[in-house]
């Protein structure tokens, strides 16, 4: 039955295997935005590129990736940024994967009670110390013990008090933990 595959027909197409299948977009503006808000250095994304096969979401994929032309792929790479929003938003998957490179607008070690609220999609209040590297109203990254978990939206209070502002959780409903379970384990007591 099986013969060795014939070498593919010579082609004049000089584009990469990836470019032949999907639109590779200029990533520089997107990476510059992430550097400006979060201090994520563009070299964090070395060897990766952004592709757009879906009008709402840009995906990130390694540049040596070779998807097939046929059958047409459903998805290529990992969802990276939602672009059809007033403020384009990193996906939760992207925050978890790249968020450790952030140097500002990041709360990398939130407290357990804050994490419980965050993954239940509830607002969390932050102290001046916790908000020390927040530069102002806008997206912030939330993590626990340096495990990055997702994105919130920070709004500072305009009155002085014990807490300086509130972070609205943008954690996806589909990623939540069952509400009757303790995400810190059965042995956890607080």
């Amino acid at each position: 039955m099986t013969q060795p595959l014939e070498p593919s027909a010579p082609s004049n197409d000089t584009r990469s295997a990836l470019e032949q299948v999907v639109t590779v977009i200029d990533a520089a503006p997107c990476f510059a935005m992430l550097e400006s808000r979060f201090g994520i250095a563009p070299h964090t994304f070395a060897g990766l590129c952004l592709v757009q096969s879906n009008p709402k979401v840009v995906h990130i994929v390694n540049a040596d990736h070779q998807p097939p032309l046929r059958p047409a792929p459903d998805t290529i790479g990992m969802p990276f940024m939602r672009i059809k929003m007033i403020h384009p938003k990193l996906t939760t998957a992207a925050v978890m994967r790249f968020g450790n490179a952030a140097t500002q607008n990041v709360l990398a070690s939130a407290e357990k009670r804050q994490i419980r609220a965050f993954i239940a999609r509830q607002d969390i209040e932050v102290s001046a110390e916790e908000a020390a590297n927040f530069t102002g109203r806008g997206y912030v990254l939330i993590g626990y013990r340096n495990m990055m978990l997702g994105m919130g939206f920070y709004a500072p209070y305009d009155r002085p008090g014990q807490t300086v502002g509130v972070v609205q959780s943008l954690f996806p409903k589909a990623w939540s933990v069952a509400s009757d379970r303790n995400p810190f384990g059965e042995a956890d007591v607080e």
Binding site: V61, N62, H65, P71, T75
Partner: peptide, 13 residues
């Protein structure tokens, strides 16, 4: 794949 942070995959049906 998203939860694990994998970006070297393509899916087809």
């Amino acid at each position: 794949l998203e939860r694990l942070g994998l970006h070297n995959t393509t899916t087809t049906t």
